[in-house]
Design a protein around this nucleic acid. Sequence first.
DNA 1: GTTATTGCAAATGATTTGCACAAGG
DNA 2: CCTTGTGCAAATCATTTGCAATAAC
Lengths: 165, 165
Amino acid sequence: MDPTIESRLQHFIQAKGLRNTPQRNSIVEAIFATDEHFTADELWERVRKTQLRSSRATVYRTISLLVEAGLLHEIDLGDDQKTYDPNFVDSPAHNHLVCIDCGKVVEFEDKHIKLLNDCATRRLGFRPERQTLKIEACCEKLRLHGRCENLIAARVQGKRLPKKR
Amino acid sequence: MDPTIESRLQHFIQAKGLRNTPQRNSIVEAIFATDEHFTADELWERVRKTQLRSSRATVYRTISLLVEAGLLHEIDLGDDQKTYDPNFVDSPAHNHLVCIDCGKVVEFEDKHIKLLNDCATRRLGFRPERQTLKIEACCEKLRLHGRCENLIAARVQGKRLPKKR
DNA sequence: GTTATTGCAAATGATTTGCACAAGG
DNA sequence: CCTTGTGCAAATCATTTGCAATAAC
C-alpha cells in the first residue's frame, strides 16, 4: 500500500487519540489494494474474502473515518448507494466521465478545467476550495463501430447498466 | 407558470398515455412557483399548505415523473436526502457553487466551461451528453469583512449549515 | 367501462446506533 | 485499567410499493 496513505492515516489516528486495530487495517488495505470505486457493501464483500473478516458496522465506520481524514472521497455516480473513490490521494483533482452506454467510469485530470473553474469561482466572489465535475457521455467506439468491449464486458459480468435518463 | 413547462409536461403525459389530475397539477405548480431547490419532504410541506393537499406518495411519484420527463433534475448537494432543481428548463446548462460558510447555492452559467469540458470529453473518445459541475468555495465577503448576510440569514432561519469536510 | 391515480399503511434497504464484550496502549 | 473498537441485532429514515377505492377519459 502507498506509504503516503499509511502515514497520513497514522497521523490522523494519533491526532484523534484513536487506536490501531487489525480489522481497520485490513479494511484500509482492501480499499487501497486497487483503484476501483466501491459501495459499502461491495467493500464488505471484498473484506469477507480476506482472512480477517469484519462486521458490516466496522466497514461502515472505517469508511466514515477515511472520508473524514480526506483519504477517501464520496462521489456521486447517480446510483442509489453511496460510491467511494480511493484515488484522490494520488490525483487530488481528478474528474469523472461516466459512459452512458456501459457505465464505465473514466478518471481524468485537466489543469485547464481546474483553472477555468477557479477563475469562475473568484469572479463570483468566492475562494475556490473543491470542485466536482461529472461528465456523462456516449461511447464513440460504440457509435462508429457498433461495438465496445466495455459494454460487452459489463454485460458478461452482469453489471447493472446505467439507467438512461 | 412557464408555458414551456406546461406544454412540455402535457406532451409527455399524452405520449405516455397518462392522465391529468388535480393533485399532480398542484404539485407541479408548487415546484415551479419558485426557483428554489427542494427535497421531497420540503415539497410535501409546501403542497400541504395549498388548498389541494396530496399524499407523500403522490409527491414522490410526481417528482419521479418530472425527472423522467427532464423537467426536473436531481442534484447532489452532499446532503443525505435527494435535492431537486427546477431551473434546468430555463438554464439547461447551469452549474452550482455551494458556499462552504453558509450553504447558499449560487447558480451560474459559463459557456467557456461547457466548451472546455466538451472538448475534454471528445478527446477521451466520447460524445458529451451532460455535465455536472459543483464547486465548493468560501465566501470572500466573510473573509474580508468578517461578515456575510447569507450566513447570518441562514443562522436566523435555523438552516442546517454545511458540514465542513 | 377501462385503466391510471390516489392514499394509506406496510415494506424496503442502506446506513446508523445501543449495548455488552473484547482488546489496544 | 481506562477508553476505544467490534459485532450483533435492533432502530432509523427516506423512499418505494401493494392494494382497495377513486376518478380520468
